[in-house]
């Protein structure tokens, strides 16, 4: 049978309706928005007020910012407080990557386990929908929702940089690096998170336990963020492109695993028990 988008859209539309009526599913994603946005502004706005000096005056981050200018083109031409602020906004932007990971994970586990809990998989599979269409539908709504949320958070981040940063800082933040991070890498990381969540959900009957397992995905990102703060690592555009290519490969592998897991017979004889 050929792949039919109308079936994918019908089911994805249903998932979107359910999502709107289930704030519990969206809650972890919304909490992560605050968790990801808050630290950068805490450092940029609160720390200088607490110590009574600007970054330029205190010399905090100044050396790292100057060194990073070689790897982050957006820092070129900036100096003083604006340079340090732009550097900090760039470093903390990595934290925003938590939003697509956590949102995708929270929504996908609900999308799959919700069907199990409602015992809706058998009537669903009794329609002409193929298992690949089912897999596509189960990832489409979480993907679009998490991506929209991520881009919304990036806009808020830039708006915050415009409000709280030195004049022109937000423009230097909204450069190629941010585009590569959230226009290219974030959708790929999100897709990987979605696929891992769907695979884990196939073996779990509780969204929270599935989320605990897929939550391990944020550990590598946290490690990257800490390495950046310690000055061990600066992520430039080429590193972002290479990481994106690696995620294309990872997604290919996960897709293969997902298709193996999403077998009609396993769904009926094992998932619905």
């Amino acid at each position: 049978m050929t792949f039919a988008w109308h079936r994918v859209i019908a089911l994805a539309r249903k998932d979107a309706l359910e999502l709107i009526r289930n704030p519990g599913a969206i809650f972890p994603a919304v909490m992560m928005v605050f968790g990801a946005l808050f630290p950068a502004f805490l450092v940029i706005v609160v720390v200088p007020r607490m110590v009574g000096k600007t970054f330029e005056e205190s010399g905090e981050f100044a050396d790292e910012a100057a060194r990073a200018a070689d790897l982050i083109p957006e820092l070129a031409g900036l100096a003083g407080n604006a340079l340090v602020q732009t550097f900090i906004f760039h470093q903390f932007a990595v934290l925003l990557m938590l939003v697509p990971i956590v949102a995708a994970m929270a929504l996908a586990t609900h999308a799959v386990i919700g069907e199990k809990q409602a015992r809706a998989l058998e009537p669903l599979l009794a329609t002409p929908i193929s298992t690949v269409e089912l897999l596509a539908a189960k990832t489409l709504t979480p993907f679009l929702f998490a991506l929209a949320l991520t881009w919304g958070v990036v806009m808020l981040y830039l708006a915050g940089a415009a409000v709280f940063g030195e004049p022109g800082v937000w423009r230097a933040v909204a450069g190629m690096r941010l585009f590569l991070m959230f226009g290219l890498l974030a959708p790929l990381v999100e897709l990987a998170s979605l696929q891992v969540s769907v695979i884990v959900s196939s073996r779990s009957n509780d969204p929270r336990s599935a989320q605990q397992i897929t939550g391990l995905l944020i550990l590598p990102l946290t490690a990257v963020f800490v390495a950046q703060l310690m000055g061990l690592l600066v992520i430039g555009p080429s590193a972002l492109i290479l990481t994106s290519l690696a995620f294309v490969l990872v997604n290919g592998i996960l897709l293969w695993v997902g298709v193996q897991v999403f077998q009609r017979e396993s769904i009926l004889t094992r998932w619905t028990r």
Partner: peptide, 28 residues
């Protein structure tokens, strides 16, 4: 085939109409 499963398997957060509309669309 119209299959009635032992458990109704409805999407409980959706209205009766939205439950059925989704299936009508899945059946084309």
């Amino acid at each position: 085939v119209g299959l009635l499963t032992e458990a109704p398997g409805l999407w409980e957060r959706l209205s009766v109409r939205n439950n059925l509309l989704t299936y009508a669309r899945l059946h084309g």
